[in-house]
Amino acid sequence: MSGILFLEQGLTAAQAMGWMQLFLAFAIAQQSLEHLALGGVALRDRVTFVSRLLLCLGLAFGLGGGWPVWGLWGLGLAMLWRYQGPYNGGSDKMTMLILSCLSLAHLAPTVFWQEMALSYLAVQLLLSYFVSGWVKVFNPEWRSGSALRDVFRFSAYPVSEALRGLAERRRFLWIMGWAVILFELVFPLALLNPIALKLALLGAAGFHLSNACFFGLNRFFWIWLCAYPALIWFQDRIF
């Protein structure tokens, strides 16, 4: 019974921002430590990543109001310039999107504009699943299962050579491909019910976990989780 009550619970805007900032502090610290661990890192980059770590501490402990968020946003911009684009594709884009929305939420002069910033993030999170499913369902190679076979067969992503063997398991990949497409397409419907949303987010986290295991996309897992509180707040606010 208490489990169901927990699943039905929403979040206030302040709670959502608090959880997002805590998760974000962990995710950005993890990214920064990975950069620093590479060795031979230039002084300007070391300064960037150590600064990010310090700002993450402020973010995690709720120090400095909006300043840690604004600082991380500024450093995110500097990193886009340094690497002439995202270092880690979609996960860096999501990092900047969350930081941009949180920065605006902290700058917002009224509750209305704060909610607009959080809503934008929630809608983008929904779109990140729905658009991915939409483009796949119109692609005959995804519908036949050959696209997912190609991912395993020759793409740069599988983390070991042994995983390439999955390309031969056609029926399994066809089922998995359609499971992903259908999940991504129906994901927005989960907004209609708070319990369905929590279960959908759990399923989505499992999807990111499998991508992290098969394709080494660990940063995607952590950074997508950071945006989930915005969607839980949004569902509670709208429905």
Binding site: G76, L80, P86, G90, D92, K93, M94, M96, L97, S100, Q124, L127, S128, V131, S132, V135, K136, N139, E141, A147, D150, V151, S155
Partner: peptide, 13 residues
């Protein structure tokens, strides 16, 4: 592109 992402992951391989 970070604030207006396309989200077209694996559109084609």
């Amino acid at each position: 592109p970070t604030v207006i992402p396309s989200w077209r992951f694996f559109n084609t391989v």
